[in-house]
């Protein structure tokens, strides 16, 4: 396992603001790594330091084992797709895609061939002679992708590439980007604030907060075993319960069940969670039925619990709960995640 890029002790500060704080990160070759985190956590800064648009205040960045910390962008051979696409408005689609090849002095005939090949990869060969203005947002995005890939970059960098697309196209482009990565074998770094996107697309997921890495790992690992409360929170865990020994338990709302005190819904689990609670709300939201409760955890703290159940799997007991009802908040052992702190 080799690293296409590596951050060692990289810090970037703007006056008082520390955008990236002593970052240590390895980008594995041939993998799709996502940087995931809320807005302002330093994802773009990290990507722009890798691309060479920002020089870090401290630390080193190596690309393919070579120190690139102070190398200007034009000497890095990286393909970057900007959030705004940043196509050259005065050039045709073909000339946009061929821009990097022309700079590399690829002869015209060969260039044309490569341009069409890369446009074909994103399904836009038929629009080669258009100007970017005459394309839809989704098409511009694909041209930007083709332009970045055309130079055979050592890494492909994508900054929130899907955030300007409509919901349906966004989901479609996720698999499209994965397909392109598989076909080209490129190392990809993708920045996103959308946990679903990261979970679906990544080989490796890097969860960030306030310029620091909170957790790195395969999506399945990070999802099922979040390292701390922040990661759990960000991945949609709710129902945080302190234990008597000072650690923290959490259960996803879709795993938390509402048992009536009489125990007709499968009965209390032998082990796991079986906590008395009082219903505060019971509503439908789209396909989900949501029950909100309050309970007192083992540390004696009052907490809010949320349970969501798909409408079609709802038992009459659960749909029948009303605010004020005394119930049991239940989860099985394997559904309970224990956090460090």
């Amino acid at each position: 396992m080799t690293n296409a890029a590596e951050f060692s002790g990289v810090t970037q500060s703007y006056g008082e603001t520390i955008a990236v704080d002593n970052l240590n990160l390895q980008i594995e070759e041939g993998k799709l790594t996502t940087l995931l985190g809320p807005s302002g956590c330093g994802k773009t800064t990290t990507l722009r330091m890798l691309a060479g648009y920002i020089t870090p205040s401290a630390g080193t960045i190596t690309i393919n084992g070579v120190d690139a910390t102070r190398l200007p962008p034009e000497k890095r051979n990286l393909g970057m797709v900007f959030q705004s696409y940043a196509l050259f408005p005065h050039l045709t689609v073909a000339d946009n895609v061929g821009f990097g090849l022309k700079l590399r002095k690829v002869p015209a005939a060969k260039r044309r061939e490569l341009v069409l090949h890369n446009l074909d990869l994103v399904g836009l060969a038929h629009l080669a002679d258009r100007k970017p203005k005459a394309l839809s947002g989704g098409q511009q995005q694909r041209v930007a992708l083709a332009r970045a890939i055309a130079i055979s970059p050592s890494l492909l960098l994508l900054d929130e590439p899907l955030s300007n697309l409509d919901a349906r196209l966004r989901v479609q482009m996720r698999s499209e980007i994965r397909r392109i990565q598989a076909e080209t074998g490129l190392t990809v770094v993708l920045v996103t604030h959308d946990q679903e996107e990261a979970l679906e697309m990544s080989d490796v997921m890097v969860v960030m907060r306030a310029g620091k890495v909170m957790q790195t790992g395969a999506p399945a690992t990070v999802f099922t075993a979040p390292a701390n409360r922040f990661v759990a929170d960000f991945l949609g865990y709710e129902n945080f319960l302190a234990t008597a020994d000072g650690s923290l338990l959490t259960v996803r709302p879709e795993h938390l069940r509402v048992g009536t005190a009489g125990g007709t819904t499968g009965g209390a689990p032998a082990t796991g969670l079986n906590l008395p609670a009082v219903v505060t709300d019971s509503v439908y939201r789209g396909v989900d039925h949501i029950v909100t409760m309050t309970a007192t955890d083992a540390a004696g703290q009052q907490t809010t619990l949320v349970s969501t159940t798909r409408r079609d799997t709802l038992s009459s007991d659960q749909s029948g709960v009303r605010p004020g009802d005394r119930v049991l908040a239940q989860a099985r052992d394997h559904e309970i995640v224990r956090l460090a702190a």
Binding site: L78, M80, I151
Partner: peptide
């Protein structure tokens, strides 16, 4: 920036 990234 895109132009720089592409090698200009």
């Amino acid at each position: 920036e895109a132009a720089r990234g592409l090698g200009a």
